[in-house]
Design a protein around this nucleic acid. Structure first.
Lengths: 254, 254
DNA sequence: TTACACCTTTCCGTAGCGTTAATGTAAATA
DNA sequence: TATTTACATTAACGCTACGGAAAGGTGTAA
């Protein structure tokens, strides 16, 4: 039995465009080309197409399928395992997204109008989560602190009141920090007050606070551009100032 | 305060390319263009960018964000609801995919000579699949998705040793529970021991343990016939007994 | 003046096709 | 047989949300 694109497409339930594309990328070449330039497929190609569709249903990329079907030495199980791991990661991310969307809907329904600042605070928190997701490993290695990951769980448990508390706290930090910065002295009373407030703020996100972790976070505020920018928004150098204040506050050398 | 693309990008943690793109699609236009053609942003734009990033974090498309921010009459909550529904659909599809990938891996492994490790892997998969297939949908509907997803994810991350631990633990629970049941008193020392063991067991599956969740699970053991049957296997009434013990253990009223 | 950081626009690439457009061929009908 | 209809071809743009590179202008400091 021989098939043109239309017929094979109808048989397998794919478009003719798809078949031409698969030809183009070398995934499924027709058995031959007739005198008019038509693609002609045979039984072998039908079977191969079935297999292609099978792997495609598993969500594998076409390039991976090319390897699986065309390279006999290719380790299919390994590829599937890696693929599964990717899918699981995706699901975790999805769960996070859904939780955040729910939170936002709840907030809107509660008719609590979020100020821009509050929104930004939410964003900052999410930035931490993102860091955890994207760079988790690197940051852990760099700052030797595995408490970061716990912020997610804690955040999800926060209710509206706690959320407002934490937002207010951050505003206080900003204000105190701005005043403290003017003294130019990270060991000044007001600077230490800022560090104390910051510790309280962190405690909202981390279930176990430790000096080392706090100091690591402080260093991160300087090293990571995004955090730095947040604290330096009003005054260049504030991030460093906060770091130094925290270092003194925690009694870590610097 | 005024910002060029670089500065605003650093502040918000996005690339200059992104800012130019947002300008291009009309999502975020600079306050003005200076005589050299530079984009200059002001405070208003900073705030708007925060909002953009906030919604982007929720996974909304940029076009939707344009509507939310630029059309005052746009129904944000409705959009979020629709968005959530899409996310939930996605997750269902993902779960299906994952199940199929697992099945395929198992099949392939069946053909190859299975090492002990691989056998173990397969077994673990099967446990997950059974969990998912037997109880998946109904439990998800009844008790919420996140708990189930998390327990599956955790199960997959377990290594052999942990898996054996958790299995032993379950056997211990069964034994202790049988003995405790004879006392007829869910607040007896041995019954509370059973509840304690059960908490440990749950902690293997849940990343964040909470009293409320544990109590909810206990009620589930009674409400859901299959779980009930599992605990009542030896003695009718054991499921209720365990529930009561857990309620007392967690200090929840009943 | 030179160096250098920063700015601009333009364009290609991404994954997997959908969708025209322009044109050629095979089969069915008047 | 002529015409219509159905199907074939290649080429090229479009979709999402940018990343990255090229080619060139601008601002500022040494």
């Amino acid at each position: 039995m021989e098939y043109t694109v239309k017929k094979l497409g109808a048989l397998a339930g794919v478009s003719t465009r798809t078949l031409r594309y698969y030809d183009e990328i070398g995934l499924l070449k027709p058995a031959r080309i007739n005198s008019s330039g038509y693609r002609i497929y045979g039984e072998l190609e039908v079977d191969k197409l079935q297999q292609i569709l099978f792997y495609k249903e598993l969500g594998l990329e076409l390039e991976r399928i090319v390897q699986i079907l065309d390279e006999p030495s290719f380790d299919t199980t390994h590829a599937l395992r890696k693929h599964r791991s990717k899918l699981l990661d995706k699901r975790e991310q999805l769960d996070l997204l859904i939780a955040n969307v729910n939170k936002t809907i709840n907030k809107n329904e509660g008719r609590i109008i979020m100020s821009d600042k509050e929104k930004f605070e939410g964003f900052k928190q999410k930035a931490i989560e993102e860091n955890e997701h994207k760079y988790g490993k690197e940051i852990r290695e760099k700052y030797g602190n595995d408490t970061i990951s716990q912020s997610n769980a804690k955040l999800q448990k926060m209710n509206q009141e706690e959320y407002e508390n934490v937002t207010r706290l951050d505003e206080q930090i900003q204000k105190t920090l701005t005043d403290a910065f003017k003294t130019g002295n990270p060991s000044s009373e007001i600077a230490q007050k800022a560090a104390e407030l910051h510790k309280q703020w962190v405690s909202y996100y981390w279930s176990d606070y430790s000096k080392e972790a706090n100091a690591g976070l402080a260093q991160m505020y300087v090293d990571d551009e995004r955090f730095k920018a947040h604290y330096d928004k009003e005054q260049e150098g504030t991030a460093e100032f906060l770091r130094d204040a925290i270092y003194i506050y925690t009694g870590m050398k610097w």
